[in-house]
Amino acid sequence: MNTERIQELIAKYNAAQADPVELKLIEKLIEEGLIDLGELHELQALDERLDRMTLPAPSMQLNDTFYHMLAQEKKSAAGFSWKAFFAWPDFAPRLAFASVTLLLGLAAGFLLRAPGQQKDEQIGRLGEEVRDLKEMMMLSLLEKESATDRLKAVSLTEDMDQASHKVTSALLQTLNHDDNVNVRLAALEALKPYVKDSKVREELIRSISKQDSPLVQLSLAEVMAQLQVKSSVKELEKILKNENTPVDVKKKIRESIQVII
């Protein structure tokens, strides 16, 4: 259909002269988009008046019921669910927070560890100082007149993991020259852990002939037998030859010599 015919139809409609057949045609043209509703003036005016027609507003009651319903829904939506917990928009910040906290923890641990090393060093130094102090105390106690003090000094070496050369020579000195037999015996006992040291061993052998106490002699003979020190036999035989040596002691020393040989 040409434009002229359409315009003619519109004009006829606007003049309220369109017949039912033409009205059907107009409907068809409207559906096809060839006639715009705005072109039908009377209807357009009616439509505009319809738009101006105001309708009443709802009461405040509607607001109350709506916001009450919303609050109820929010309350029920706030309930915990794993699905909601792992929902990405919420989960992402949680994950980020957890990661940052973990990293901070690790960083704090690392930073606190560094002074810890210093502490270990300090403790090590302190331990050394205590050992030095013990040595000094032991050496000074060994020079005391009281046999009890000297025994204490000897027993102090038992606490030491690794006695210094100074300590072993002090103990040997005590073994050879102390007046008290018990102190000498204690010194011999304290020297036992260090017999692997060849110097200590030699000094112990040399010490055999220097001893006049049968108890110390016997103890020394036992140590030699334990260690299987063959070079000590000569020194032990010297004791056997000595006339002052008691018979029992000689017998024990002979047994020890048998063990060594």
């Binding site: 009205l23 107009i26 409907e27 409207i30 559906e31 209807l43």
Partner: peptide, 20 residues
Amino acid sequence: SEGAVKVKVFRALQDLKAVY
């Protein structure tokens, strides 16, 4: 369809005009 709506509006306005 959009066209069908326009026809419905047209018919409704026609009726409204008549009642008015």
